[in-house]
Structure formats: structure tokens, C-alpha cells
């Protein structure tokens, strides 16, 4: 069923009633999600299984993050959705329209105004506060998936905190390429204990998770897993003493063509007419605001 079909005859708040429960999920499903979220918060970085529901979106399109947002959202919340930093991408627009219509909440493009920020593959440039929740859409929750395809073995490694296979993966990268070439999905250790996949955010965003004042929740709909980084929790990327973790670097002098920023995560683009490469902020709302401020 599509959102439009669901909402076609429904006028929320009027007698005829909508053809769906508030925030789409039934109350039992929300309760399960909240319980699993509490468990995830209590065991930072540990993947908690949950009963992923059918959503009016294909699995793999952020249903895990969406279910988390719908279980959290209530009257008075303000919701923001971004896809790789952009509020205007199709995925983000769909999320926003779905949540605003089904939970009747305000939406915003400004990260400062949001109580819930749902994201795919980025963390906003604007530092988040303790009264905000960051919800990630996660394609592959298992950080060991890269080195151990057998789930039973991966679980055992987590139970024993035996992450030498992951370390070996990084060693091999240095042996073959002279540096750690892992970009997105950089493996991190949460609270000095569990290895966690921070979702395909760039390395640029990884330090923002470390001791962040906000709660970060991760939802994988297809893989049916939830995990969390509670506020003020350590999140440390794996690094060697002689090959330190580094965020992406941009060419000297690179800056956003729109707002001029040289301290944000930049997307590299090619001007179709001149063939020249240029950069723009990946976080579009932040870019808009900078632009505004500079005028």
C-alpha cells in the first residue's frame, strides 16, 4: 500500500478517522521498538534484533530508520530528514512527507529546530544538542560482515570482543596500499567494548559521534537490527599507533562554490560546461544558512 492510498479517504482528527494508526505503526509495534531501543541504549553498540514491519517503502530504503522515527515521534516534535546531507533528495522528501502526514508533526530543514533528525549516510554539520535524537538509516549493521560472512561466527566474536579479523583487514589495507583505505562504514569501538558500524557516513563524520551530547540510534530494516550510541559515550575509530585515523582531506584551497565554506564536508562535482571540478557543501541546509549569513 502506498502512502497516498493509505491517506486517500482519511481526514485525521475528523470522525471518519484515518485508515491507519497514529504514526502508521500500531501501538504494539511501537512498544516493541521502544523496548528494543531501550535495550540498545543500555548496551551501547550492541545490535538488538527487532521485528521489522512492512512499511509503505521498500526494504533497503531506510525502513529501519523510519520505524525508529515513527516509534519516537509525538505531538510537539519537529522532524528533519536528510539523504547524504541533502533535504531535497527524493528519499528525504518521501520520509518527510510520510512522517508529517502520519504523525502530524512539523518538519524543518534547519538542524537546530529539529527534535528528531533522520539521516542516510551523513551527520549534520551543525553540532546537535542533548535534546535532539539522530536516527540513522543503516544498510548493513554488522561491522564484521566485511571479514566474517558467517553470522554465527561474527556473533561469537562480538561476545568475546575478538576483533582481530577486523584489525587484520586494516593491516592488509596498509600492506597493500600503504594506508587504511576504508572510507565509509569506518569501524568504531563504542564505550570501549563493542565494534560498531557507524553506517556509511564518511570518515569526516565519525569524530562527531564521540562523546556527542545527543542520542544516536541506528536502524537496519532489512537486517532487522537496532543499535545505539547513548549521549556522552566514547566512539573510537580503529587505528594503529603509526597509522592514525584521519578524516577525508580536500585539495588545498577547496571550498564550497555556493557558500565559500572550507570547513565542511564537500562533494566534488564537475561543471558540465567548462569541465572544471568544483565543490559544494554536502549538508545543503547548512550551506543555505551560511550563504544567508554572508549576504
Amino acid at each position: 500500500m502506498t502512502v497516498d492510498e493509505l491517506l486517500r479517504d482519511a481526514v485525521p482528527g475528523l470522525g471518519n478517522g484515518p485508515g491507519y494508526n497514529y504514526a502508521f505503526l500500531d501501538e504494539l509495534s511501537k512498544r516493541e521498538l521502544r523496548r528494543k531501543t531501550l535495550k540498545a541504549v543500555s548496551i551501547p553498540g550492541h545490535q538488538v534484533p527487532f521485528g521489522s514491519r512492512e512499511m509503505p517503502l521498500a526494504r533497503g530504503w531506510g525502513t529501519g530508520g523510519l520505524q525508529l522515527s515513527l516509534s519516537l515521534v509525538g505531538p510537539g516534535d519537529t522532524y528533519k530528514a536528510i539523504d547524504q546531507g541533502a533535504d531535497a533528495s527524493v528519499n528525504a522528501v518521501n520520509m518527510r512527507s510520510l512522517v508529517s502526514r502520519m504523525a502530524e508533526v512539523e518538519t524543518t530543514l534547519d538542524a537546530r529546530d529539529a527534535t528528531i533528525v533522520q539521516t542516510r549516510h551523513r551527520i549534520p554539520e551543525e553540532p546537535l544538542r542533548g535534546d535532539q535524537i539522530l536516527v540513522f538509516q543503516v544498510p548493513i549493521p554488522e561491522p564484521l560482515e566485511r571479514v566474517e560472512p558467517r553470522i554465527s561466527r561474527a556473533r561469537r566474536m562480538h561476545a568475546e570482543r575478538d576483533y582481530s579479523k577486523m584489525w587484520l583487514f586494516l593491516y592488509e589495507s596498509v600492506a597493500k596500499h600503504g594506508e587504511v583505505t576504508v572510507g565509509a562504514r569506518y569501524p568504531v569501538v563504542v564505550n570501549g567494548s563493542y565494534l560498531m558500524d557507524p553506517s556509511p557516513i564518511p570518515r569526516w563524520d565519525v569524530p562527531k559521534l564521540h562523546h556527542a551530547p545527543n542520542l544516536a540510534l541506528f536502524g537496519a530494516g532489512r537486517e532487522k537490527r537496532i543499535y545505539a550510541v547513548p549521549p556522552h559515550t566514547s566512539v573510537e575509530p580503529l587505528e594503529f599507533e603509526d597509522y592514525r585515523f584521519r578524516v577525508e582531506s580536500f585539495p588545498r584551497g577547496a571550498h564550497c562554490r555556493r557558500c565559500g565554506s572550507d570547513d565542511t564536508f564537500l562533494d566534488e562535482l564537475t561543471d558540465e560546461r567548462s569541465g572544471e571540478t568544483y565543490f559544494t557543501c554536502s549538508d545543503t541546509s547548512f550551506c543555505d544558512r551560511r550563504l544567508e549569513e554572508r549576504r
Partner: peptide
């Protein structure tokens, strides 16, 4: 690595 060496 299993013995916690962390210097490549």
C-alpha cells in the same frame, strides 16, 4: 593483533 599489537 590477537596479542594486541597495534603498531604496523
Amino acid at each position: 593483533l590477537a596479542a594486541e599489537w597495534r603498531h604496523i
